[in-house]
Amino acid sequence: MIQYIIRRFLYAIPLLIGVNILTFVLFFVVNSPDDMARMQLGQKRVTEQAISNWKQQHGYNIPLLWNSEAQDQEKVTKTIFYQKSVGLFLFNFGVSDSGRNIGADIQERMWPSLALALPTLVVGLVVDVSFALMMVLFRNSYIERTGLVICVVLLSISSLFYIIGGQFLFAKVLKWVPISGYDDGFSAFKFLILPVLIGVFSGSGSGVRWYRTLFLEEVEKDYVRTARAKGLTETQVLFKHVLPNALIPILTGVVVILPLLFMGSLIMESFFSIPGLGSYTLDAINSQDFAIVRSMVFLGSVLYVFGLLLTDISYTLVDPRVRLS
């Protein structure tokens, strides 16, 4: 097991290097260090001197990939790519192009992201699973058919409509919640309730349908027929046999996305001005702050790899037949 995990970690390294090269190439094709300096220095009274100062300060005054002037191995190490990448692998994200330390910002903004994403996930899971169960319980009846139609309708509506509509109705017209904002601690509740509900609602269409198919697959299996033959009622069958067994794919599906919850939701956070990592990323894209975007890409990939690992492990935990090798 431990050996397996170590192997997976080693496997992650070329992956992360690949990710890093890709983002690096993509962004530097677009932006030369000069551009970045100009972007950050503003448009009033910018001189060449100021630009070269900025580049030196942010470590952009060396060649991108190959330093032909340096000695031996410094030809590789004394480049922007090497210098910046090494920092990332050590989780030392450095300073953003606009001058703030990225690591400190990420640490701080992680929690609001989580405060929004985790309840959305949990509540969404509970709601989706219970509705899916209900539909399976009442299968081949008008309840299931209406339910399915509602699901298709729900998932045919762009999430932007839910957000715009929800914010308009509950915050502006009914004044039940603040229209946007965030606070630490328990005061966060009133800010989060609306985005969480909208998140749950907009995801429920596809969620319910997906869990329904999982349950239906399980319902058709032989052991369920046996249970039914034993004389258990349909409700008992569902809760005692189908639900526990169907939980395995559900939970492993959840485990994959757990680490990525830290990354936050781009749109939800910016609509409700929640100071999480999602809005952090979005701001960075808009202001073309390459250092932040690069760090977030890296962080995202690390979390993704971590999620994959978690899934594998959780498989072995819930299903003893699976062995990691």
């Binding site: 993509l26 962004f27 990323t281 894209i285 890409v297 995202g300």
Partner: peptide, 19 residues
Amino acid sequence: YTTLNAIPSVLLIAASILM
């Protein structure tokens, strides 16, 4: 494909659109 998957797609799209 794991490498491509690992990059948050929005960021990949943003970078490419800039390009």
